[in-house]
Nucleic acid binder design. Structure first.
Lengths: 246, 246
DNA sequence: TCGTATTTAGGTCCTCCTGACCATAAGTCG
DNA sequence: CGACTTATGGTCAGGAGGACCTAAATACGA
């Protein structure tokens, strides 16, 4: 009854991980893209990723790919599963499922070209969103962006974009860059400093090129932010980007 | 370099979907469990699920399994991807990845025993949580419960548990059962009716066995709830249940 | 040396939302 | 009719957030 099934009902398939790696640099949100060095989609832009290896957990595979593509050990940044994509025809080589991951980190070094990546580079997300990406990677990128924007609201992951220690203004710029509109500096400070364990003052301060020195903070222990960071600027009440049919 | 890899780098693996199906009945949250009718874990309790078939998308596979196990066509209920589990030794038959789904629906009919399920039945979640489940299904169930609890806060999915039309008290009982503590009826009504497009009045009312008749509502168009439903009862500030290493 | 520009830090007012109540309405049951 | 139960609606105080405004601390230039 089912084509391509083995006697025990299993269907042989390949499983990959793909990573949406975001960082904030030069007042813009960037995503790491590679130019594919082999078919299919040779020469096209794609998200970094690769096959899950035999003894490997999914998180391990994501961390390994992260290290291979960026030279960063993933313990410094935020990593979470996004969603798994498995449309039957999404890979011309055969049935392939990909577990998409979202990675968020501070301004990362310019990546080295990996094994199967001809080149790897940081691309502003607005540029990437209007590009053609291999496979279904454009959809994955969009979902990653939606997830990142949503998570800024009710979690403290914004701090994952800041190299420690950081100033309140650094943290505010993360929100402004990812949400795409300015926040009131005064109200933002009040919100962040009064929230329990979002940021902890170090007691030190840093003098910028111009302006008054800013107090330095480091991440607190809180993961959730309650009440959430308000995001009232116009584009509100959009449909939630989650998964399936419902 | 890698054992069990084909020449092109792929590792043959099986992909399944498993479903955490929640419903509210008799003032308690229930989850659908099956007793496995074949090895491995024959005779043990497990989440319903099965292999993704050849031409099938992941969502399609989840909907098919849902129909097979409960006789319900999934378009009446909320369905979303939870997370993918792929620990190397999670299935003794060989490398198997499972895409876990979360399904939420109104008091569903008693399920029919499916093809590979000896028996299927609704189990109170507190009972299920203290049971032994096959594979890593207990972890999946816990994550599904965490996700459901969290989603009640900032989305309108609670209405997916109510057969339409429903009363405000019906909706409130969903929150109370899933969160595990009572909510103030008056404040809950104010919150729900003033939130934009959470519920829409039908103009009709229903007389219960005892007490004043209650106005009937149906689901509004909103998916997100802003500001969120407050969940201040003690167990607050717990670590977020999300995915990976971070 | 003394303003000026710039950025941080902190305060004020007002409005909305929420928690904790209380009061009333509209049914059923004895 | 009166007791009970549930639904509906209102009040009041406290907290959080948006829209401001003021002061502090630095670099720079006249």
């Amino acid at each position: 009854m089912n084509r391509a099934l083995k006697h025990d009902g299993t269907m042989p398939a390949a499983v990959t991980v793909d990573l949406v790696i975001f960082t904030v640099r030069a007042a813009a949100l960037h995503v790491l893209l590679i130019e594919r060095g082999m078919p299919p989609f040779e020469g096209e832009l794609a998200l970094p990723g690769g096959y899950v290896r035999a003894g490997e957990d999914l998180d391990q595979a994501a961390l390994r790919e992260l290290a291979e593509e960026t030279g960063i050990n993933g313990h410094e940044l935020h990593l979470e599963q996004l969603r798994t994509f498995g449309a039957p025809e999404r890979d011309p080589r055969g049935r392939t499922f990909t577990v998409a991951y979202l990675a968020l980190g501070p301004d990362l070094p310019t990546p080295v070209a990996g094994t199967d990546a001809a080149t790897a580079c940081w691309v502003p997300v607005d540029v990437a969103l209007s590009s053609e990406l291999a496979f279904d990677h454009l959809i994955i990128l969009k979902e990653g962006l939606d997830r990142a924007r949503a998570k800024l609201e009710y979690t403290t992951v914004a701090a994952a974009f800041c190299r420690q220690p950081f100033t309140i203004a650094d943290l505010r710029r993360v929100y402004e860059v990812i949400w795409g509109f300015p926040l009131d500096p005064s109200n933002f400070r009040r919100k962040v400093t009064k929230a329990a364990h979002f940021v902890e003052p170090t007691g030190e301060s840093r003098t910028p090129e111009i302006g008054r020195p800013a107090a330095l903070y480091r991440r607190g222990s809180a993961e959730l932010l309650f009440p959430p960071m308000p995001r009232s600027a116009d584009g509100e009440h959009e449909v939630q980007p989650s998964a399936a049919t419902g």
